[in-house]
Structure formats: C-alpha cells, structure tokens
Design a protein around this nucleic acid. Sequence first.
DNA 1: CGCGAATGTGACCGGGTGGTCATAGTTAGC
DNA 2: GCTAACTATGACCACCCGGTCACATTCGCG
Lengths: 217, 217
Amino acid sequence: MPRQTWHNLDPERRDRVLRAAMAEFGSQGYSGGSLNVIARAAGVAKGSLFQYFDDKFDLFAYVAEQTSLSIYAALLPHLDGPGAGQPFADYFDELVDAWIAFMAAHPLERGVTAATTMELDPDVRSAVRAPVHQLYVQGIRPLLENAVATGELRSDTDVDALLSVLILLLPHLALAPFEPGLDSAVQLFGRTGARRSATAHRLVATVLTPALTGVAR
Amino acid sequence: MPRQTWHNLDPERRDRVLRAAMAEFGSQGYSGGSLNVIARAAGVAKGSLFQYFDDKFDLFAYVAEQTSLSIYAALLPHLDGPGAGQPFADYFDELVDAWIAFMAAHPLERGVTAATTMELDPDVRSAVRAPVHQLYVQGIRPLLENAVATGELRSDTDVDALLSVLILLLPHLALAPFEPGLDSAVQLFGRTGARRSATAHRLVATVLTPALTGVAR
DNA sequence: CGCGAATGTGACCGGGTGGTCATAGTTAGC
DNA sequence: GCTAACTATGACCACCCGGTCACATTCGCG
C-alpha cells in the first residue's frame, strides 16, 4: 500500500504518476514494466517513486487495485439488474456491451486489465487478482441469484459454476476486440459496432442459454 | 525455426536444451526467461543457443510449438469421439479428465502452456498462439460437428461460438488445479482426484448442457 | 592421416534493471 | 526569520540481459 506521502501529494502529480504507471505496466506487464520509464513519463525522479511506494510490487498492486475499482465504479450503473419486464438475457447483453464500450474508451484500464489477467508469476497473480475476483463476484452473483429467485434462471442452476465461467469469459470478451491473439474460432479482434456486439452476444448466449427458463428448444 | 545445426545434433543434447528452455520459459515467461539460465541448466555454452536458433524469440516459438504438438499427440487417443452408445457428455468429461491428468503428470508442458496462454506482448502472443489454436480447432471441431450430425447436439448449435468458449475454458480448466489465482467462484486449485474431476465437470456442463438434446429440464 | 567444414565456447559488449542515499529544496508553524 | 519536518532529486550500485565473435575443438571423408 502507498505511504502517507502519496496521499499528501498534489493530486495533479499523483495523477501523472498513476497514469504513467498504468500505461507502462499495462503494456509491459509487471516484470517487464520499468520504473525508469514510469518516472520519466510522469516527469518525476525515480527516487520519488520509492517515497510513495515500498517497491515495484507495491506500485503494481496499487495500480491494479485502483484500476479494478474504477472499472467497477464505471459498470456499477449497469449492475442493478434487468428493468421491469426486461428479459434477463437482454439485460446481460447490455451489461456486456457496456463493458466492451468501457474498454474501448479507456485504453489505460484495458491494458492494466490485460496485464493482471495474463500475469504469469503465481505470487504476483494471486495477490493482484484476488481483489479483482472479489469485485466480480460481488457484482455478478447477486444478478444470478436474483434471476433464479424471480424464475428467469432455472432453479437448479449451478450458480457457482456459471459465475466461474462468466468471470473467465467476460474479461476475455472485453479484451479480445482490442488485443490480437486472444480469440480462436470466433473473430472478435478488430470488430466494431454492431458486428462486435453480435459476436459477443453469441458467446454469452452459449454460456447463459442453458440456464434460462422458457427458451424454445 | 531452428537451424539445420539443431537437427544434426546429438539427440541427448537437443533434449537437454529443449527441456531446460521449457522449464525456464514455462516458469518465467518469454520476456522473463533468461538464455543464461537455459544455457547453464542445459550444460551448454550460451553461444551454442545462437548456433541453433536465430534469437530468443525463435527459441521460444520452437518451445511453444513442440509443446503444443506433444500435448496434441498425447490427447489424440482421446479425440476419436464417443464409443458406441456412450453419451456425448460422458465422453467429453473423459476428455477433460485426460487433459487434466496429462497436465498433472507433465509439469514442463503445463508451464509452457501457462506461459503461452498468459503471454502479454501482442506480437509474441499472436505468433505463438495461432498454431496452438489451430490444433485445438482441428481436434475439437470434428467432435462437435459429429455430435450435431448424430443428433447428440442440437442441430441449431452455434458450433463456432461453442468452440470458442471451449477453447477458452479447457486450457483454463487444465491449468487451474495447479496454478494459483486462476479460479474464482469455484475452488479448483489444489484439488485432486474425484473432487477435482467433479468440479471440472460442473464447469464443462455449464457450457455444454444447453447444446445437448434430450436433457431433462 | 590430413584437411575443410561444422560445432562448441565463454569473455566481452552496450545497455537496462530495481533500489539507495547524500544532498538540496520546499513547506508550515511560531 | 528561524527551525524542523517533509519532499524531490539523480548519480550511483551491483547485477543481469540478449547477442557477438575470435578462437578451440571435433567430425566427416577422401
């Protein structure tokens, strides 16, 4: 966690450091990210970074946490469940669209998400992803549980399993249109607009449909 | 691609280099992997590596390719479709079990799979994953198409979408029991035996069930 | 044997790394 | 205006990196 000095800082300077760190870690990952580059891009001496954070990992963990919090905050308005009379599947498609739109508009957050999702070192990955997973669970599980309660999802739905698959699929969906080499059979990279949206919905439907009640078979 | 020299090599020496490279890249990733470490572990001068491969990337790409080929070869006996009268879902569970069992028994291949799956650099990732994806598609799409043809999967199954989700889910399933920080709602890491198997089947069922015909709803 | 081709080697190169620290500058309170 | 606490700085440290190359060794073959 950042030192007190970090919180005393001029917000503009703090922001410069945070954004520089997001850009560097987001494009180079944790081990590949350079503190020299971050300091230079932020217009700050390298020594200053160590006045704010214990070490490289401390900075990376902070960047990852702040990023996941700001993504969560941006999606929060879309996490209140389906509107009156709105089918659950339609609502979920909207949520996915919002997610992808956010990533399209926020390359820094997208990069950091990719870097934490793809972090190889087990210790770093565990430390950094645990809070992210918690946010995902906290945001999505109530949606599924409500849908089961209202009968929109089958009562015998394996909520934990469905949640796990969605937490794997959703960030992947949100990144794949912008990061090459992620998708396989379905072409998501480089797609935009309605075609991107439709492709993402196909994948979500593959996972979600079985649990829906009243789907024509 | 490796130079001719590599193919002329004493197989035992070749094997030492390959295994050392798998271990290093598998644990440290591409950018984090050290040629010095590989050369030392293989009992070979660093200069020799550059007699066999153009550069670091060439070696990594070769390691990734060989690894995916050997995984494919090991799973090939399980890719011939369900036996007579065997339900498709049961067959697919067996395939997943075989996959996980392979990863349990082959930590080197597991590490390389993790390293290629989680590679952050877009160029490296694209180059290294394209052939892997091709093998996955080649191995799994016929299974799905056959199952549609025999009526075991619904005729309106979106085979491409299902394939995409499976190609995302299956390697994740095969790695999660051994690599911490990958699973979220469902506890797969550290599980063994029947409990691990049952958990994996729950996740596969979540994806696969909707497409099955004749499932009680 | 001899000789040319192929292979093996490790010191060396320029450059980058995370992290430290003595020093200088800035701020706040009295 | 003085002082004490806080903050900023960048040269410097030991170490590691991918890649090269002049030279030693081994091999294949006539």
